[in-house]
Design a protein around this nucleic acid. Structure first.
Ligand SMILES: [Zn+2]
Ligand SMILES: [Zn+2]
Ligand SMILES: [Zn+2]
Ligand SMILES: [Zn+2]
Lengths: 159, 159
DNA sequence: CATCACATGTTATAAGATAACGTTCGAGGC
DNA sequence: GCCTCGAACGTTATCTTATAACATGTGATG
């Protein structure tokens, strides 16, 4: 039982499921799901939270999968580029995507107290931002939407 | 004439206006608008774009206003905390607020080609994100909305 | 087997940010 | 006038995050 998107759930299987789904998709798209890449995704899925590159690197190093920064950054670049994980700008951290494969614009709810991160989604033309872009002629290619605040649990504890 | 929000305008006066407005507000709110803080805001207004802390520090250093990182970071912290400037997560950079004093949630349009940054605004409950937060009981305190793409000028040049 | 693309190993360094500690200086109380 | 306090500042050192650059391995293709 781990907090995911602020809800509890038994996810003894969902790591394996997500990994095998990733494996399948990599095969289909001729992407190389190498041991380091696979292990980094697995780490993100296990922890089910945002993790810094160096935090991940520490784990890889302890397991003999490499000890230099590029090892972690290369794996993360691969995962992010191919939609298996997201970078969370606000935290300089990374988290496994909760609905990989589907085309989507992720948005995050970040608890400033317990550091939990939930992924939800938004549109590329997120409300007024899209309107502003259309007004000015700006062509949006990517949108970062990250909210910071208190998750249900921490909000209750604080009240 | 400088690009502001992707439009051209003569802003020979707007720097001075913004500075005196800041001065007035600081006086009213008993905030100390010290030389370093004032100069950093002025630098951001002059350049009218997002600038890194070290880029600003270089200028301060050349002018004898201090040469160590905390000098720049302290001034920027003050400006951001009090709404005179914004931090742009995606760029690890800072920009003067284009409508200080007014309570608002800034959103940015960032040109990946020419690096221009335009500030617009959005709501705290930005569309689907707000809905997701309400569904889960998450309490949003702050929202980061940053879009990356091509400004009108660069989009045209690329077409 | 030659070649090419891609992944990896490794070293070094760049870029961004903060911790910590002492000093200065002005406003408000005595 | 003097004391005291807090906010700002000066300075040193260090920490975190990220990338440049170059050498090496390896599997697919023709
Ligand atoms: Zn996702
Ligand atoms: Zn929480
Ligand atoms: Zn603003
Ligand atoms: Zn542009």
């Amino acid at each position: 039982m781990t907090a995911i998107g602020f809800e509890k759930h038994d996810h003894s299987h969902c790591i394996a499921d997500a990994l095998s789904a990733a494996e399948t998709r990599c095969k289909a798209q001729k992407l190389q799901f190498t041991p380091a890449r696979r292990r980094v995704l697995e780490i993100l899925l296990e922890r089910h939270r945002a993790m810094g590159a160096y935090e991940i690197l520490d784990i890889l190093a302890a397991e003999g999968l490499g000890s230099q920064p590029p090892v972690a950054y290369r794996a993360l670049d691969f995962l992010v580029k191919n939609g298996f994980a997201h970078r969370i700008e606000r935290l300089n951290a990374y988290a496994a995507c909760t609905h990989p494969g589907e085309q989507h614009v992720p948005a995050f709810l970040i608890c400033r107290s317990c550091k939990a991160v939930a992924e939800t989604e938004t549109g590329l033309d997120s409300g007024r931002l899209g309107a502003a872009a259309r007004d000015t002629g700006f062509v949006i290619e990517k949108v970062v939407v990250e909210a910071e605040g208190l998750c249900p649990g921490c909000a209750e504890a604080a009240a």
